[in-house]
Each structure stands twice: as structure tokens, then as C-alpha cells.
Amino acid sequence: MSQEILRIQKISGHAGTVPGEDTQREYKVSKLIDTTTCIGCKACEVACMEWNDLPFGETVFNNTYQTMPETRWNYWNLILFNEHEREDGTLMWLMRKNQCMHCAEPGCLAACPADGAIVQYTNGIVDFQQANCIGCGYCITGCPFDIPKMNPKTNRVFKCTLCTDRVSEGLEPACIKSCPTGCLHFGSKDDMKFLAEGRAKQLRDHSNFPNAGVYDPPGVGGTGVIYVLHDATRPELYGGLPKDPRIPWTVKLWKGPLKWLGNVAMVGGLIGLFVHYLRFGPKDRKDEDIHPGGEKS
């Protein structure tokens, strides 16, 4: 977790391989969010705004705790509240800290056409480089978590950076630092996974949450943000966390087979027409004088 963070592992829209690919390996980093000990205090939201210098947006009130419905281009970290009624009729607060998941296979990056507008560092952090962004919004379509948000004034897309600037200096992300209950942890992916599984086991064995488990969706290769959920079989209850997130298959088709087919067809078409001209030439012959300027009819 040193300066090595600036080593790139994946890069969007780049003609050719990743510069300096795999010359050095690093631990994958991960953020662990234990939703079972989150109290919805929003300290992490404030810490994110503070560290990243983001303004507080306008709030709405509709008789719930959800005073801001979703993340914004300048509001990257949001607690989603759900008042969940259990089978026995009792009420349960489900609170989830929502932000970029830092997918191992990021759909945003796969969709992005601009050279280097989205990179994934060797430690797993997915970072947007606004200087290279062209504002096409393809990343919005590629992301299965609805995370990238467009600044309508500058047409650039923003999201949680996992505090790349802090992590590269050996610090933990600002949100982690602020959490009063200790439900947020930061470290290597392996360590966080170990911690999370331990906590889930504890919930299953001692706290009457037989479905407790860890959310680290394999459809996107695992994520750099993992959750402990009381009920891992129903992640949708937690602010619409997708059960089996994947890069949309049309995005894969578009960036995969369609690209190759299209390129082969275009180059093949050009060559085909050229060969046709060599073989058959123009339809009229000079001696027939059929083109304009010719008087013979």
C-alpha cells in the first residue's frame, strides 16, 4: 500500500497493452462494511465530504431517514436505509453504506472508450481520471451498481476514489477513520475476507442470523468493498444491492464479439471492393463515352 498504488493494472480505451503491466505485484486492498453494526450515523458521509471537499446537497423529506435518495457526482458515499419487516412482524433497520464497489472486473472500465479515463491500480482500486474523460457516459451503462455520476456542467464523471490519495500515503480511507462503531475496516483483501467470514460465522452461531454471510459477488470477479449482511440470501433488501451483479451481457457483446466482427467486416469490405475493382473495373469503358462530357449517345 505504498507509492506502488500508482502502478496501473487495467486501463480503459487504450490501444495496446497496459504500460509496465505486471512488473510488480501488490496486495489487493479492500474495505469491509459490517452492516450489522452500522448505526446509520452518517459520519462516513461527512468524512467523505470533508476529505474530498464535496458540498452538501439539497435534502428531501418523505417521512423516512433517506434524506438524500442517491449518490451524486459530488456526493460519493451514502447510507441507504430500509425499514424491513421480518416474518415475525418485528421491525429491523437495514443500513448500507453505498459507494463504488471497486470491482475486480469493472464494467465501467470495460465500457469506457477514452484512453486512460478509467484505470485500475494493481492494488485493485478503480479510479476515474477526469482529465481523460470525454463525458460519453458509457461507464454509467457498464456499471451494475449505478455508481458513476455525471457532472452536468463539465460533462465529467465522478465517483468514490477509495481515497486513492490517502491510501497511496499509507493511510486508510476517510470514511474508515470516522466510523464510531468500528463497522468499517480497511486492509488487504485476504485479511478483510477473513475478518468478514469470522463475523458472519459469529452471527450465524451466536446471534440467530442463520443466513448471515459475506457479499463479495463473483459475477464481477469479487469487489474491493465487501459487506457482512444479516441475510446474505437477500442482498436486495439492503438498498437494492444486486444479488448477482454482472457486467451487462450486451456491454460484453458490444466490447467483445461485435467489435471483432465489425472490424473484420469493415476491413474485409474494403479489401473486397478493391479486389472487385481490379477484377471488373468500372462499368463503362472509355470507348463508350458514357460519362458526362461525352456527347455520343
Binding site: L273, H276, Y277, F280, P282, K283, D284, E288, D289, I290, H291, P292, G293, G294, E295, K296, S297
Partner: peptide, 25 residues
């Protein structure tokens, strides 16, 4: 390909507007 290379006279038709009678026939 058709308009510029194969069917000479077609390109002129969309520039100047006319074709030779031979072309039309």
C-alpha cells in the same frame, strides 16, 4: 464504390445534377 468508381457519371449527377443521355439509357 458504385458512385465514384464503378458507375462513372453517377458522381457528376449529384454534383452538377445532370447525366449524359447515354448514361440514362
Amino acid at each position: 464504390y458504385m458512385g465514384v468508381f464503378a458507375e462513372r457519371g453517377a458522381f457528376g449527377s449529384v454534383i452538377r445534377g445532370d447525366v449524359s443521355i447515354a448514361f440514362a439509357k
